[in-house]
Design a protein around this nucleic acid. Structure first.
Lengths: 251, 251
DNA sequence: AAGAAAAATTGACCTAAATCAAGGTGTTTT
DNA sequence: AAAACACCTTGATTTAGGTCAATTTTTCTT
């Protein structure tokens, strides 16, 4: 299945692609679908394509020799897979990618991407940017793993979701199973479950899959109060802006 | 102080720069020195330069609100500082950089770098590559933080040093204080100290600052045996190649 | 060489989170 | 509607590594 130029331009990576380049890209790529639970690729497979998620979500994970699953990321629409591998000229996948829900992806042959990178159009600039951003967030993640408690990490994650759902006053639903989220946060599902209890006292109530922030200031204090990266954290900043707005209208 | 074209070409980042571009770069950059213990920049400072280490070592670290130091990296000759920040168009440093030992660095104005990136010469390619590599290693680090014991992480670090020192049969000296290494590995110095005891049973003996691998196979098994990234790990591979070579000559 | 400062070790103790195990809830299949 | 399954919760227990405090060793300074 081919892709429309508009669909292409809707993807952040290709938002300012030229008509010509877009046409060229469309000729070389196609849309594939990946049903919930299906693997897009597995560890050890040959790297054939660079992918951009158009719809759905993909789990990127590894398995330890002991058979334990380690989720490195959950990617959503707009995100791309394989960037490091394509840039780093690897030939074989080191991780697994599985659809968390029914998904569709734009698949671009790696050869085409690599050829194109040599001429450095705007795409390479975006990739550079993208890699820099991801590097930053993984660094932050590593830092938080050693400085924050499990409860703080969960709270931090929920705050990000809260922003993603635009501070919906009705709250929001967890987008994935708790087991998957726990795995993404590198904690055990039991620990995750228990932290949700303690978060009640910190202004966040989770009932079933429904999350609602009862006291945003308290929640923010709890997770960001002793975080080493709070000042540069977009989520933290947005929380404060929101709180300012609310206090103008309130009391 | 200006830099010689040869010195410039000795840096991996600029190894295949053209004569013209090299001359241009030399005109725009200079060598600065940074004495042991001195800060190159601090958290909150304006980002003025992109740096490449010519000699010495720099500690990249943050401070938690609680005053605890978190070492994110120890960079050595050939490594560059600030890549993400320059690419990501940040204006202010989020981390501190301090010289671990007397160091000298090539300082290139950020404005010049950014200007140059737009035209994408080979440098941008190297940066892209560099970011991809670093992203990969931080991802591995995050993974290891949750899957490996402190002793395994220390062993893994010592293995890397062993490779860096080319399997010197006399062993090697730790390049930094144990406190710094512990901080880099995100464990406490006390824990680090204790792991060194247990590593004796795993074929690695550390006396004072001197490290020697008594049983490379055992050591490798201990740290890589249940590591999720062992197959793609260069250090692990080199260890095995070395062991093969040794077994041909031995017994 | 003496004294100060920095780095490293060692011991005792504590705690957060993993692990193990059992039971509960909800959802899909037949 | 029952069975099967996936997912989640709760409790009891263990343990790795952090924390605190006291020395000892090494390195730097004068």
């Amino acid at each position: 299945m081919t892709i429309a130029l508009e669909t292409l331009k809707a993807l952040p990576l290709f938002s300012d692609i030229s008509g010509d380049d877009g046409a060229m890209l469309i000729r070389n790529s196609r849309i594939i679908s990946c049903k919930r639970g299906k693997f897009l690729f597995m560890h050890g497979d040959k790297i054939t394509h660079f992918y951009v998620i158009c719809r759905g979500a993909m789990q990127i994970f590894r398995e330890t020799p002991g058979g334990h699953e380690i989720t490195n990321d959950i990617l959503i629409a707009g995100d791309s897979l394989n960037t490091e591998e394509v840039v780093g000229s690897q030939t074989v996948h080191a991780v697994n990618a599985r659809a968390v829900e029914d998904s569709s992806l734009l698949a671009i042959p790696v050869s085409w991407m690599r050829e194109n990178l040599k001429e450095f159009d705007h795409i390479a600039g975006k990739l550079l940017q993208n890699l820099a951003d991801r590097l930053h967030s993984v660094q932050v993640e590593a830092e938080q793993l050693t400085t924050m408690s499990a409860a703080q990490m969960v709270a931090c994650y929920l705050q990000k979701l809260c922003v993603l759902y635009d501070f919906d006053p009705h709250g929001f639903e967890l987008p994935y199973t708790k087991t998957l989220i726990a795995s993404r946060l590198r904690i055990e599902k039991e620990t995750f479950s228990r932290t949700l209890q303690t978060l009640r006292d910190q202004g966040i109530t989770v009932t079933g899959t429904h999350v609602s922030f009862k006291d945003m200031r308290k929640a923010d204090n709890f997770s960001c109060g002793e975080c080493s990266v709070a000042e540069e954290c977009g989520t933290h900043r947005l929380f404060y802006e929101k709180l300012d707005k609310l206090s103008v209208h309130g009391t």
